[in-house]
Design a binder for these strands. Structure first.
Length: 856
DNA sequence: ACCGCCGGGTGCC
DNA sequence: ACCGCCGGGTGCC
């Protein structure tokens, strides 16, 4: 009865339930363990295993594992073991159990030592890890090397507490592990997915029910996905040695085949057709490698109702080492709300019209919660939010009660935080096969990967301890082998191609040509005068800061001055009346008000401000008293790491958590001021209108994107568009999902009366935004970050684009806009230098950089 | 015989 | 466990 998979799950479960530290009996008969405890245990493990960040090694100690003869768990030389407190043990409440990777109990820690360890473990003063270096063949007890890890501030307490009970931690020869912040290793991780691009062998034709012919690289992906689902290849780091299976990283071995991972990560760049490939997978690879049996309607070629590729049970020769539930039919797709409609469209588009595929949208208050109904569908689509809401409300969440054939996570990086409700809900779904679709599987650090691997049930790393010990901590500390292992791991389960990848020397997708041209705009006399006035004012302000040596403290002001110049280049009415400099603030309330105002200025302009800690666009923006903008979590991390002596990473001023200021929620952009005044034009507006009118006269079917970082500029542009009778829509970040979807659908429509222009805010919409109806892009103002512009252009220059794409960038001659790209590069250098060291002699060079940046 | 010594039973927590 | 420890049997050499 003990089939390999099953017993594996149960050992695993036993291990997990001990983690849960619940009152569950550790010695439960294996057969009684149900999936309910398993899921509880997974949740417990995810929340209880602390993040290994900033842990240092306190010391090591040779201990003894006793009672070996009572348990079945064996260990190999060099194997890692887990130490689990067992407060419910009837013989000793200090008991510490020793278990191997699969959770098979090996023995206990000797009583006296256990008493000393129990204090340290129960008070979470240290995490204790064990490795057995020798004596693995012993009958009664064996030595174990114990390593104590924890926060620096607990080191002395732990060392002394152990010493009091007669155990001396050996601290000699341990190099103190430095605390790393995640951004320092960002580059190493950026390269993690390199080298995954080589084409994996073979290609596979999709089932007949797929209407769209697959491109070569999509056939390759399909082939890879099918083999990941069907073949019994060993997971990474497992080898067969004799009749045992051996894990080369943990040195664990087992008689049973390690549970295979049926699925993986499809990490292709967006636009390569992850959605189509997944639809093809669903239709092509049902049980035993046969296509999904679907009904064909009677309509075309007097075809009878037939089962397209009905599956038989006999052709099991190649696979089925492990039995599977052949009655499972349904694929569950979970995606962010923003791409829900895209999935529905794509099913519509890519499945043959005469095929009856049951796709159910599990969404909205009227959703059908019947398990029987849901599990009879071919596909159920829902969102992360619906899934986690169901999960939270009741234990009887219908989606959690079904054994899915396959679960697909679209934009899978959504679950990178293991503590999020969403992630917990996703991890507990029951499925035979699991897939993650993501263009960006790693966003900031290796930590992002754990939930993904846990979802895939990649043994043994789905248990946080093994992940932390074997992969995350070594990688975070820059250990080469650690990074290498991480890469190997990822490589085995991931397929990633980028738009620039090639197959047989040919690009994966051939997109229509893209032409980028810069159109210089000359300011008229009045505009030029106003611009020069502002420029001189800014120059003198910055000159003063340079003289005072306070440039870095007034960093936000420097940016604000640049901002005003950029606004001048677009339209005079963009300039908000921003008064004052920071120095004049009299009261704390006033200072706060000023800071809020500055922050708002930086944010509302859509200037794509980057956080200097994570180097990404700021999320949850806060401003420091020295007026630098960061993500709240990033700067909070810096402050907590530096413990009371925290300094601003950009200007080294003292900063405190309590002094971080954010924009009050009710602050929304005030549109009324622009409408109050009488509308006027500008040189840039004229330049745009000239182009639009010319295009319209050439070809009425051409559609355009008009892009700006300033949403107020978009508002200004509405007036002349209306005047000339253009039909247009607008998409910006403030719009609800529903409105957005409507706007996109209208714009993408090829109907004769559909809008021909979309006013688009540069940062609006996620990466998935598909605007292929447009073939002309007008970038009204240059962005700090050229990548942002590229992304924006890619929204129409992507798979599905039929026309040649023409991009026009408007740049005002003799203005700050001409320097934007150079400034961007300088800014990046500046940030790097700021983080390079806290050394003061670097300060001068940074000020020089700013001077150069402003051509002073 | 309130000890020492012998040898069998026994053995995690 | 080819140990240590316990506790019963035993007792000059």
């Amino acid at each position: 009865m003990c089939c390999p998979i099953f017993s594996g799950v149960m050992f695993f479960n036993r291990w997990m339930s001990s983690w849960a530290r619940a009152s569950e009996d550790l010695f439960t008969d294996r057969n009684e363990i149900n999936s309910e405890t398993l899921s509880q245990a997974i949740r417990a493990a995810a929340s209880e295993e602390p993040d290994a960040d900033g842990s240092v090694l306190f010391g090591q100690l040779q201990g003894t594992v006793v009672g070996l003869r009572y348990y079945t768990g064996v260990v190999n030389q060099g194997e890692m073991v887990g130490l689990v407190r067992e407060p419910q043990n009837p013989y000793d409440r200090n008991a510490v159990m020793v278990a191997n990777i699969y959770g098979n109990q090996v023995g206990h820690i000797k009583r006296e030592l256990a008493a000393a360890m129990a204090y340290v473990m129960d008070n979470k003063l240290a995490k204790v890890e064990g490795v057995v270096h020798y004596g693995t063949k012993n009958k009664f007890n064996m030595p174990v090397m114990l390593s104590f890890w924890g926060k620096e501030e607990n080191k002395n307490t732990v060392v002394e507490s152990m010493l009091r009970r007669g155990y001396k931690l050996n601290t000699g020869g341990i190099k103190s592990a430095e605390a790393f912040l995640c951004f320092q290793l960002k580059n190493a991780f950026d390269n993690l997915f390199e080298g995954l691009m080589e084409s994996k062998d073979g290609e596979k034709e999709a089932a007949k029910s797929v209407a769209t012919p697959l491109l070569l690289h999509q056939k390759q992906a399909l082939s890879w996905m099918c083999s990941r689902e069907n073949k019994c290849t060993l997971p990474p780091f497992w080898e067969k040695r004799g009749d045992l299976y051996y894990n080369t990283l943990t040195h664990f071995s087992a008689r049973e085949v390690p549970e295979r991972v049926r699925g993986g990560i499809l990490a292709d760049d967006m636009g390569l057709g992850k959605t189509l490939t997944t639809i093809a997978l669903i239709l092509t690879n049902f049980h035993n490698g046969k296509p999904l049996p679907v009904e064909m309607s009677v309509s075309v070629n007097n075809m009878k109702q037939c089962k397209c590729g009905e599956y038989t049970n006999q052709n099991a020769s190649s696979i089925t080492e492990s039995p599977e539930d052949l009655s499972a039919r349904t694929t569950l797709i979970i995606c962010p709300l923003s791409v829900l409609s895209n999935w529905l469209d794509q099913f519509e588009q890519h499945v043959h019209a005469n095929v009856k595929l049951n796709v159910y949208l599990y969404y909205g208050s009227e959703r059908n919660r019947s398990k029987k109904f849901l599990s009879s569908q071919d596909v159920v689509i829902t969102t992360y939010n619906v899934l986690s809401a169901d999960f939270e409300v009741s234990r009887g969440s219908p989606l959690h009660g079904i054994h899915w054939l396959r679960v697909v996570l679209d934009e899978g990086h959504t679950i990178r935080n293991p503590n999020a409700q969403m992630s917990k809900a996703v991890l507990q779904l029951k499925a035979q096969r699991r897939w993650i679709l993501s263009g960006t599987p790693i966003q900031n650090s290796v930590k992002d990967l754990w939930t993904l691997l846990a979802f895939l049930r990649l043994k043994p790393f789905d248990v946080r301890e093994w992940w932390n010990r074997v992969i995350q901590r070594p990688a975070m500390q820059g250990d080469r082998a650690g990074l290498q292992n991480l890469q190997t791991l990822v490589k085995c389960i991931t397929l990633r191609r980028t738009k620039t990848s090639e197959v047989n020397g040919r690009p994966l997708v051939s997109l229509p040509e893209k032409m980028v041209c810069v159109e210089q705009v000359e300011l008229n006399q009045q505009e030029r005068e106003e611009y020069e006035l502002a420029r001189n004012e800014g120059r003198s302000t910055i000159g003063r800061y340079v003289a005072e040596g306070t440039v870095l403290r007034n960093y936000a002001d420097v940016l604000a001055i640049l901002m005003r110049l950029r606004q001048h280049c677009c339209h005079p009415d963009l300039l908000a009346k921003i008064s004052s400099d920071l120095g004049a603030a009299a009261t704390p309330a006033e200072l706060r008000e000023r800071l809020v105002e500055k922050l708002r200025l930086v944010l509302a302009s859509g200037s794509d401000e980057e956080c200097s800690v994570c180097l990404d666009s700021v999320c949850l923006p806060v401003i420091t008293h020295c007026a630098h903008v960061y993500c709240r979590p990033c700067i909070a991390k810096v402050i907590s790491t530096q413990q009371g002596t925290a300094r601003c990473p950009l200007c080294r001023s003292d900063i405190k958590e309590t002094e971080l200021v954010e924009v009050p929620l009710e602050e929304m952009e005030d549109e009324s001021s622009t409408h109050a005044k009488k509308w006027r034009t500008s040189s840039k507006v004229q330049a745009l209108m000239g182009n639009l009118l010319r295009l319209q006269s050439e070809d009425r079917s051409i559609k355009c994107l008009v892009v700006s970082q300033f949403t107020r500029f978009l508002s200004i542009l509405e007036t002349p568009l209306r005047e000339h009778g253009f039909s247009f829509v607008r998409l910006d970040g403030t719009m609800s999902q529903k409105k957005r979807a409507q706007v996109i659908q209208d714009f993408q429509s090829s109907a004769a009366n559909s809008p021909s222009i979309m006013l688009l805010s540069l940062k609006a919409g996620g990466v998935g935004l598909n605007l292929t109806a447009a073939s002309h892009v007008f970038l009204m103002d240059p962005a700090w970050n050229p990548a942002t512009e590229e992304q924006c252009i890619d929204r129409c220059h992507r798979l599905g684009q039929k026309r040649k794409v023409v991009v026009t960038k408007f740049i005002v001659k003799d203005s700050v806009e001409e320097n934007m790209v150079r400034i961007q590069r300088k800014k990046q250098d500046l940030v790097e230098k700021a983080f390079g060291s806290a050394n003061t002699d670097k300060k001068t060079s940074r000020i020089d950089d700013i001077k150069a940046l402003l051509e002073l």
